[in-house]
């Protein structure tokens, strides 16, 4: 099923989640590499352009996910989660949701305020206009710093979030990760924590 159910995520949420996750991890690594000072200048220019194109892709997907998230029911938390875990996970998810939109928007603000005035040409094909912001070195520095802090903050949250998912899967052996992977059986919903080695399909 495309849409979420009471007991698990639908394909829409799953595909969006993993596509965005892949993009975010790649963009953080790319963002780090491309800003090293000793990098070859021609390569650096290309990497920046790839970063902007993939970053815009992430922004579009994150935006679609926000709409998806607002218009779908949310599966109930896995029954075995404590109240604290539920709170922690819903706060983390809300932050992840917000940062996946805020980080690329702030990136777009860097490109838009930069005195270099380099166009964002989406995968060398479609011109994405700059945001209507004044160009200045001060603004560019401000947005670059904000982008770096938010992006590395997002990276920290992702580690926490992925760590928790892996902990649930390999330690608690519950369905938390499986229902985001789409390998979840309906009958496992209520008592999955009691059948850790149930076949996955």
């Amino acid at each position: 099923m495309l849409r979420n159910r009471q007991d698990t995520f639908g394909w829409g949420a799953i595909v969006l989640h993993w596509a965005i996750a892949l993009l975010i991890v790649g963009l953080i690594a790319l963002g780090y590499v491309m800003t090293r000072p000793d990098i070859d200048p021609e390569l650096q220019f290309s990497l920046y352009q790839w970063h902007k194109s993939f970053g815009m892709t992430a922004l579009a997907l994150a935006f679609i996910r926000l709409i998806w998230w607002l218009s779908n029911i949310h599966p109930a938390p896995v029954a075995s989660l404590s109240a604290l875990e539920r709170r922690a996970s819903s706060v983390t998810h809300a932050l992840l949701l917000a940062l996946t939109i805020a980080v690329p928007l702030v990136g777009w603000a860097i490109a838009s305020t930069s005195t270099l005035n380099i166009p964002t040409l989406f995968f060398n094909r479609v011109l994405i206009p700059h945001l209507p912001m004044e160009k200045s070195e001060a603004a560019e520095t401000f947005w670059s710093d904000a982008h770096a802090w938010l992006a590395y903050g997002l990276a920290g949250l992702v580690v926490l979030h992925a760590g928790a998912a892996l902990l649930h899967h390999f330690w608690h052996r519950d369905v938390v990760l499986r229902r985001m992977l789409g390998i979840f059986r309906r009958d496992a919903a209520s008592n999955a924590h009691q059948q850790p080695e149930g076949t996955d399909r």
């Binding site: 070859d40 200048p41 021609e42 220019f45 005195t115 270099l116």
Partner: peptide, 13 residues
Amino acid sequence: GEPRIEKFLRSSA
């Protein structure tokens, strides 16, 4: 008029 562009133009790129 933009030092970063001049630096890029002088570079190996």
